[in-house]
Design a binder for these strands. Sequence first.
DNA 1: ACTCTCATGAGACTGAGTTCCATGTCAAGA
DNA 2: TCTTGACATGGAACTCAGTCTCATGAGAGT
Lengths: 232, 232
Amino acid sequence: MPHAAQTLPEVTADAIGMLGERGYDATSVDDLAGALGISRSTFFRRFGSKEDIVFADHTYLLDRLDTQLEVAGSDPLSAVAAGAVAVLTYHVGRREASLLRNSLLHSNPVLRDRELVTSHRYERAFVSYLRAALPLPPEREWAATALAASVVAVHNRVLRAWLRDESLAAADALRTQLRELTEVFRPMLAPTGVGADGRTNAAPSSARALIAVFDRDMHPEDLFQHLRETLE
Amino acid sequence: MPHAAQTLPEVTADAIGMLGERGYDATSVDDLAGALGISRSTFFRRFGSKEDIVFADHTYLLDRLDTQLEVAGSDPLSAVAAGAVAVLTYHVGRREASLLRNSLLHSNPVLRDRELVTSHRYERAFVSYLRAALPLPPEREWAATALAASVVAVHNRVLRAWLRDESLAAADALRTQLRELTEVFRPMLAPTGVGADGRTNAAPSSARALIAVFDRDMHPEDLFQHLRETLE
DNA sequence: ACTCTCATGAGACTGAGTTCCATGTCAAGA
DNA sequence: TCTTGACATGGAACTCAGTCTCATGAGAGT
C-alpha cells in the first residue's frame, strides 16, 4: 500500500504501528519495506536501520533542543529546564504515538537499550551547552555533568509516569521538579561563593541576604571553618 | 592455543586483547572461539554474545555493588557515594585492562552505546537502593532519581579523566566531588524542611542557623513569600 | 538529443545469533 | 561391569540485519 506523499512522521508512525501489532522481532525489514511500498535497499538508505525508524523523532527533538539552547536567554539553568520541558511537551502532544512506542520498547530489550542511548544524547547536549554557557572553574565542571544527568533522569521519570497516567499534568510537574533541581545546583554552578551547607559555592556579591542550614550535629569547629570560608 | 584452566577474567582479557589488536569488527566470533579453544556454539553459550565478553566484569561489579549497598551503614547518601568509589577503585586497580577496554570502546560506536546501557544499570541500582533506604514522600522521589543519575555521571567523568591521565588521584577526586554532590542533594532527601534558596526542603528542626542566598534582582515580594514559607 | 546526477531496486554477500541434533563425559545406581 | 541420565560440547543448517555493487530509470540542464 504505497501512499504517494506521506510526511516522515506519518511513515514512521505506520511502521511503529506495524512493529507493535506483529511484534518487533517477528517483523522483518522486508515486511516493513513492503508495507511502506519501498524496497529493502531504500529502507536502509532512508532510515539507516530497523531500530532507527522507532527513534526517528528523537533526532528531530535533539536538533530542536540544540537550537532552542542556542537562542536561550540569560540564565543557563532555566534554559536547560525549559529545554527538557519542551521535549516532554512534544511527547505529551502526541500521546497516541508515545504510547505506541512505549509499548514497543517494553516488548523488546534491544529497543529499551537503544532508548537509553538516545536519552544519553540529550544529556550530552545539556552538558556541552552548560559548559559553554557557564564559566566554570575546572574543579566545578563535574557539577554541569551532574546537573545534565539529573535533568534527563527527572525528565524520563516524569515521562514514564505520564505514560502510565494520562491525567498527570506532566509539564507542570516537570517544571516544578526542575525548578527545585536547578536551584539545588545553582550554588554549585554560580561563579564563586558559599552555599547552604556551609560549602563554598554561591556568590555573596549577588546576594542581598546570606542564609545557610547547618546540621545540628555538625562539629562547631567545622561550622566556624565554613563560616570563615564563606565570609572571607 | 587452548589453555587448560583459565579464570574467566583471564579469558575475557585475552579476548579483549585480541579484539583490540585486530579490530572489533574484523574479529569474528569464529576467530574468538578459535583463539579461546572452544567452538562457536560454546562461545555463545558461555558469553551470550560477542559484546558481552567485553563487558563481562560489569556484571560482576554490579553484583558487588548490590551487596555493598545491602550491608551499607546508616547514611544512604554516603553509601551511594562509597559504592561509586568502590566501582571506580576496581577500574583504577586494573589500569591495563581498563585502557584496553577503553580503546576498544572508542573504536566502535556499538560498544560505546553498550557502555551507556551498562552504566544505566548502575543508575538503577542506586535508585532502587535509595528508594528503599530513604523514606521519601512521593513528591520528592524524583530527587533520588536525580541523585543516582548524577552520581553515575560524575563517576564516569572521573573515570574517563583518569583513563586519559594516570597521575590523577581518581578515587580522591571522586570522593570529594561526591561528597559535595550528596550534600547538595541532602536537603532534598531529608524528611522535611526549608532550604538555602528559600525553597522548602531542609528541616529547620535540625538547623542551628538558617542562611539562604537570594538573587539581587529577585522581587521583594517573592523574597517575602519564600521567607514566609520558610518560617511558617 | 545528450549527459550528468541521483534515487531506487535487485541480488549477492558477511556475520551475529538461534536452533536442533549428535557426541562425549562423568557419576550414580543396577 | 553395564546402564542410564544429566550435562557440556561441537557441528551444521538456518534466519535476518546490514553492506556492497551494479543496473535501471527519471528528471534537470545543456
